[in-house]
Design a protein around this nucleic acid. Structure first.
Lengths: 111, 111
DNA sequence: GCAATAGTGAAGTAAGTGCTTCAGTATTGA
DNA sequence: TCAATACTGAAGCACTTACTTCACTATTGC
């Protein structure tokens, strides 16, 4: 499981576009073909394929071609890595606040 | 608490850059001035201020100027919104897999 | 007061992003 | 077999990003 800086770059960059998040959202409800991913989006199929390439490069989505249909699905471990990075920083911040709270409470007791 | 598409764009975009993630990482360990944020980064102070503007526009960081020093800190609710978006999609996918697993187990029982 | 500190703002630039269109290939179903 | 389907790939173009430098302002400590 890679979650080095470059991989996180690619994942957050991939999630920064509303069309790509919509594609991830669709895939979170089950696998889909490229055309199915494209259907709700107001852009050319080519554009959708380019978005799909970004998602695959980031590791968030995996796809496989059977006959003329490419079927895509979510790669949950990658989602988990992005989630984990955010969670760690938020927890660190909250733990710090807790310690600060304890310190202030103790200071108050001493007066 | 906004977490509409545009806000998520800004947050994920903000997190897509390693310098900005390093700044968030630093801030997760406590407030810091602009110069303190800049210190480990191999770029001009101007560049750091521009990154800081991106972080503030995304809502991930808040800052306040006292005298000549601007002190920055994390806004944990924004971090939580990004975390939440990812978590929802991952859970949807995992729930779907569970149902699929149940279905396959039942099919097997029937044979 | 005055030098050092801390940050601000504008302009310029090279590279990257998000599309488009158009021309193609491979598969499928009647 | 042949038209429809489902992509694929390349080129081009407007816009954005991530810096740089340089000139500048506001505070602070001596």
């Amino acid at each position: 499981m890679l979650h080095d800086a470059a991989q996180l770059d690619l994942m957050f960059q991939a999630l920064a576009d509303p069309a790509r998040r919509q594609m991830v959202d669709r895939l979170s409800r089950g696998p889909a073909s490229v055309s199915q991913l494209a259907e709700p989006l107001a852009m050319s199929l080519s554009a959708v394929v380019q978005h799909l390439n970004v998602l695959e490069a980031s590791g968030l989505v995996r796809s496989e071609k059977m006959g003329r249909v490419r079927t895509c699905q979510i790669e949950p471990t990658a989602l988990r890595a992005a989630e984990h990075w955010i969670n760690e920083r938020r927890l660190a911040w909250e733990r710090r606040l807790d310690r600060l709270g304890d310190f202030l409470a103790e200071s108050k007791d001493e007066n």
